[in-house]
Design a protein around this nucleic acid. Structure first.
Lengths: 218, 218
DNA sequence: ACTCAATTCTGAACACGTTCAAAAGGAGAC
DNA sequence: GTCTCCTTTTGAACGTGTTCAGAATTGAGT
């Protein structure tokens, strides 16, 4: 039965993720994972082609948790500011246990060859999944975001989220307090910034920014 | 004499950098560097504590070339737009030979423990050196940048440069044409964006952005 | 029950970055 | 010359991620 195989795979993933959390990425060896799981090293490689693949496993899981938590937190929230704030804090909540692992994750994810890389390729699974969370936050908002920006806003916010995640990696304040402050401070500014889009001078520059961003993508 | 020792060190660095350029970071082994340089592996480690240290050596060199090339290119340029453009293109010129190495460099640099990391710590050598180049571009400009922004602008531009560098890493167009286009398109927009700082509504939001950015740093 | 192919698992082996005890070299003092 | 101390160099050894030829197990068909 396929269940047995799946069980071994899941067991390996669970143990690897726990060890990543508890002792960090570099200190968690493939041998230790295999031993702890009661299998041979080779067998671990039968299920995960590389140590980075285990990182992807973690990424998928964190991603799914973020989506679920954000969706729940969004219930009842209408204005874009609250929705964005809830989404960002949900992300930080989910990442929290892995903070000590953050730097190694970033180093892995940044490689163009990594399956976790959010920038590489046109539409990696990683990118699409993450983007969807922000699309949900923007699309459900009322009053809605400015027409002109609505299409690009999720991507821009997602990009901002990548920046926040990077800030978080380097944030050594307890409980990553500073990153929380950054989110709380930045969100209202973004909301207010969006309302500036109506001012003629700003509007024109914005047009050009958007058209540049579109022309660069090809 | 100290010269002999310095010569070995330099020889190792030269060979390592050439190999990084020609075959990439991961495929360049310490053993290969040592062999090519005609010394033992252990001796290479006598001069460079780790493979990452060789990356730092490269970084310092690229940095110095960028500073020199930018300074030269700035001569005679007065308006901020031209100066910024020249500075950014100078950076791309200097990085160009190392494009295939870019991803590995980014992965190394992003680690908080790396000496090359531009974000970690308050003032790493890497950060200060790089920042100085943009300070020079801003300070020599006439008409000068808006008073309110003058202090923070170099840091903001430097941050933008980090973003451009990241874009460059993933830019597989020949000669990284797209990154050049990005620079050419973005610079005028930045210049025009700066002039918006005078509009009252924009000005207020800007104030809050700056004060948030300052409060977050501690 | 037996066969046989596919799936799952094993552990030795490889190349790598890195470490380290010890050897070799060099420069001044006597 | 040779003794002494510091710098420089060596190469074997360690632990790591990863590979691979083959052993064990499983499951379907007869």
């Amino acid at each position: 039965m396929a269940a047995k195989s799946e069980q071994t795979r899941q067991h390996l993933a669970d143990i690897a993720l726990r060890m990543f959390r508890e002792v960090g990425f570099e200190k968690t060896t493939m041998r230790a994972i295999a031993t702890e799981a009661g299998v041979s090293v080779g067998n671990a490689y039968y299920y995960f082609a590389s140590k980075d693949d285990l990182v992807q496993e973690l990424y998928i899981q964190v991603q799914a948790e973020h989506a679920a938590k954000a969706q729940q937190a969004l219930e009842g929230l209408t204005d874009l500011g609250s929705r964005l704030k809830a989404t960002l804090h949900a992300g930080l909540d989910v990442m929290a246990p892995y903070h000590r692992f953050g730097a190694d994750f970033a180093a892995t994810a940044i490689r163009p060859t990594s399956p976790v890389n959010p920038f590489a390729g046109e539409s990696t699974a990683a990118r699409e999944a993450s983007l969807g969370i922000f699309r949900a936050a923007v699309e459900g908002a009322s009053p809605p975001a400015p027409k002109k920006l609505r299409a690009d806003l999720p991507e821009l916010l997602w990009l901002g989220y990548m920046g926040i995640a990077l800030f978080w990696v380097y944030d050594t304040s307890e409980g990553q307090r500073r990153t929380r402050k950054l989110v709380d401070g930045a969100v209202p500014l973004i909301a207010r910034g969006l309302s500036l889009a109506k001012i003629p001078g700003v509007n024109m520059v914005l047009d050009d920014v958007l058209s540049l961003s579109r022309s660069i993508r090809n």
